[in-house]
Design a protein around this nucleic acid. Sequence first.
DNA 1: CGGTATCCAGTTCGATACTG
DNA 2: CAGTATCGAACTGGATACCG
Lengths: 127, 127
Amino acid sequence: MSLCNSDVTVQDERARACTVSEVLGRVGSKWSIGILVEAANGPVRFTELERAVEGISRRMLTLTLRNLERDGLLTRTVYPTVPPKVEYTATEMARELYGTLVQLTSWAERHRTAIAHAQDVYDRANQ
Amino acid sequence: MSLCNSDVTVQDERARACTVSEVLGRVGSKWSIGILVEAANGPVRFTELERAVEGISRRMLTLTLRNLERDGLLTRTVYPTVPPKVEYTATEMARELYGTLVQLTSWAERHRTAIAHAQDVYDRANQ
DNA sequence: CGGTATCCAGTTCGATACTG
DNA sequence: CAGTATCGAACTGGATACCG
């Protein structure tokens, strides 16, 4: 199975979204998953995300949000109030992904310690 | 929902595998998914992977394989023949992940062009 | 065949400070 | 509240060459 389909006509826009590996590079990036899961259940605000996605810096949150918005996975809504209020909502496309992301995090959760242990073993074998 | 469970005792080994975001950082890295999908259906050899995972360099293939082996997702078997033969096999833990990874790649496949289009729109709006 | 070694450009990311 | 700006350290990843 090829992840980057080459059996497509040359004229399409494959050059822009070479695809699966590229797309997953964004969607699967360290912070994207957390943000997408968070945003899947209704709109979230910037500060909510900052608290919910533990360990993320303000800078990375901003950058990741911009990328997700650019990819059409989040919509950004600004309410011109004082103080300003900005909400991020998952698009339909992103919500389709939700179930898979939950499976992914659940898998990671279940095997967290097994992975940490495997690393210990490996590192001891290759001091 | 917190992706990085903080409601665990302080004494556990969370420090090592802070977890979901860390684990996903590896599993979801650009090349890991392709390699894992490839290895899920029986053993694969180094050169097979080099051909199957399009665009990967020899160096990155080696590095990614080492990481996956370290994480306990792949086992590496060396046959002391001439020329040497090395096989990589997905562990049970990795095979559990297979279905999810297929969903993920399938989603990426379906929305590839929509994402590319969203980027175009976004970029035009923010020249 | 299945790697390793080296170099180096580019990218990522945290820390910190500032703003409408 | 929701960002932006800037800097430097660290990591990533490609190219190339060599090896048992």
